[in-house]
Design a protein around this nucleic acid. Sequence first.
DNA 1: TCGCCTGATAGTTGCC
DNA 2: GGCAACTATCAGGCGA
Lengths: 95, 95, 95, 95
Amino acid sequence: MTTFGGVSGAHLKQFIERVERLEEDKANIANDIREVFAEAKANGFDTKIMRQVLKIRKMDHQERSEQEEILTLYLHALGMVPRDDTVEEAKSKAI
Amino acid sequence: MTTFGGVSGAHLKQFIERVERLEEDKANIANDIREVFAEAKANGFDTKIMRQVLKIRKMDHQERSEQEEILTLYLHALGMVPRDDTVEEAKSKAI
Amino acid sequence: MTTFGGVSGAHLKQFIERVERLEEDKANIANDIREVFAEAKANGFDTKIMRQVLKIRKMDHQERSEQEEILTLYLHALGMVPRDDTVEEAKSKAI
Amino acid sequence: MTTFGGVSGAHLKQFIERVERLEEDKANIANDIREVFAEAKANGFDTKIMRQVLKIRKMDHQERSEQEEILTLYLHALGMVPRDDTVEEAKSKAI
DNA sequence: TCGCCTGATAGTTGCC
DNA sequence: GGCAACTATCAGGCGA
């Protein structure tokens, strides 16, 4: 294997190309999102407001995640290591 | 269908949720990219250099795209509306 | 000196106004640029092509900068901390 | 003079380079602004809040400009073509 | 002239 | 904690 200063060129190339493929996928999805907004706009929706809605919903989810995290902390503090389904159960009750 | 102020809630919800699903996919891919960098780092590669390599490769691609675009612009400016294969031909000569 | 909550109003005002003056200068230059484009357009030049030319020239400069940077990174990675004139020498050979 | 398809290369080059010089100036000013923020930060100011202050002041100016514009419109509508100092006088009274 | 759309800019998040 | 990449917002330019 070709190496320069102890660096494997082939191995490096693998990593570089994996990142490039993933970034291509990410760019494609970004395009898809743009298309959804365009379609919504064509249907008379205000994209700026849609973005605000998305932001608020995201914050809600984050808040919920933080609450779940706090719940887990409490359970640990109480010596009650939560099984996943316990947390699920607790969450469903909390809703 | 339920509407508020002439806005279809159901229709809007469709768009919002489509965007949310796509953004979730995008976030997952961003995570994958982070993991690839972490793995490369664990294999002794310098992520700073990797990022630089990626940046240069990206700029190369962009520059090629830009130059193809300006070629098309020139052809239009000269009244030579390019058929696709004409552009392909010109590009291959330019290389 | 007047302070509110330990914040010096006068001192803050100095900074704010310096930024505002600079932003005014920046806006003026943006206007100058617009005027140059308008003048070029009045002389029959296609501004779209001009912008494309500018973009490519900018990318050329950036790419050169990026490549110099990665050369420096590589030299460091190889334990060859570059003196400035060494880099200059290497770059001139690379050209 | 060299021309391609009726396009003067030399003339175009003049415009391109004028724009590039102006953009360089603009970039320099942007750097200056960044330095002012850095200096303010080093003096204990919160740059995020500073930016908000700047935004609010900018909106105030815009609001004032709009009011001046409306005043001018009214004066015209009344057959009173405003001399500049008249407007200045009216504005100072309005404050 | 108005609306769209792309490019510039400001803000946020993640990395070092 | 500072810095850089990325994202979202905004304004100017273009075409209908």
